[in-house]
Design a binder for these strands. Structure first.
Lengths: 149, 149
DNA sequence: TTCAAACACTTGTTTAAACGAATAATGTAC
DNA sequence: GTACATTATTCGTTTAAACAAGTGTTTGAA
């Protein structure tokens, strides 16, 4: 079922409102299409997001606040999210000796390996539904940037 | 903090991947900006979505399965979501006499009034950050449609 | 130097989400 | 008309989100 059919209101207040609803719809559509991959690896999108952030800075230690700052979905419960990832051996943590308030994390080899496995699967799910040319994709990105101002 | 800064990886696998991440980012950004409005009315986005669906068909009765079909975020727990809305007097339910398996819902006057109050507030939050012309917004919508194929 | 304020997380508690199993009503094939 | 599958929703249980309050650490000012 496509976007136009789903959204009941045949007339939108404005093109912007229509675009925004379309973004929400597309988001949920993405979640629906990648759900299986995350489920197969027993990961939530948030957890995957945290692991990806850590990989971006590997092998540095990254403080919890630094992680939170760049999380898409800023979980107020990062502690327990990391607890779960640590229990499963994907990351390690330590208190920063230079500032003992800070807790820092970094990926373990197992965490890196996990990302190596998950990444391509997400990519596949993504490739299957991308019907945009490179130029169109870049323009889409540009319009989103502009929308947020 | 903008999208380019947040996403650590300076190079994307593909423009499509970049666009998709941008959509995820924009979604969370929208949630962040409308959170206060929903909170003020003590509604979740899902609850609001259900109320909006019912309004789209008001004053008809709409079955739970019909609601679920068009929900952006298909809650597996629509029953209890509606329980909460009914308790607060925003909708009423009945079993469909013609098919006694079906439970149907429709907005109460209080529910309609709530939407009359919430709608414009969301709109305001939306207007504040829309920097797109009508043509650009329509094109954005078009690209999203095309992306999903 | 000592005390308050700011910081960086963590923990407790309430609440809702997620998943699967269960219930009940209806259609269908024999 | 009886058994069986299908449909439509609900319930039970496990799990994680959300929010607020609390703990320990550092900074800065009197």
């Amino acid at each position: 079922m496509n976007f136009e059919d789903v959204v009941q209101q045949p007339r939108f207040h404005s093109p912007t409102q229509k675009a925004m609803l379309n973004i929400l719809y597309t988001y949920h559509w993405y979640v629906e299409h990648t759900k299986q991959v995350f489920h197969d690896f027993d990961l939530t999108m948030q957890q995957f997001n945290v692991l990806r952030i850590l990989r971006g800075r590997h092998p540095e230690w990254v403080s919890m606040s630094a992680v939170k700052e760049v999380m898409l979905d800023k979980s107020p419960d990062l502690t327990r999210l990391c607890d779960r990832l640590q229990l499963r051996g994907y990351l390690e943590r330590e208190t920063n000796a230079a500032n003992r308030r800070q807790v820092r994390a970094r990926l373990t080899p197992a965490g890196l390996e996990l990302l190596r496995q998950v990444g391509p699967k997400i990519g596949e799910a993504a490739k299957a539904w991308s019907h945009l040319s490179d130029e169109e994709a870049l323009q889409l990105s540009h319009l989103l940037d502009k929308m947020r101002g």
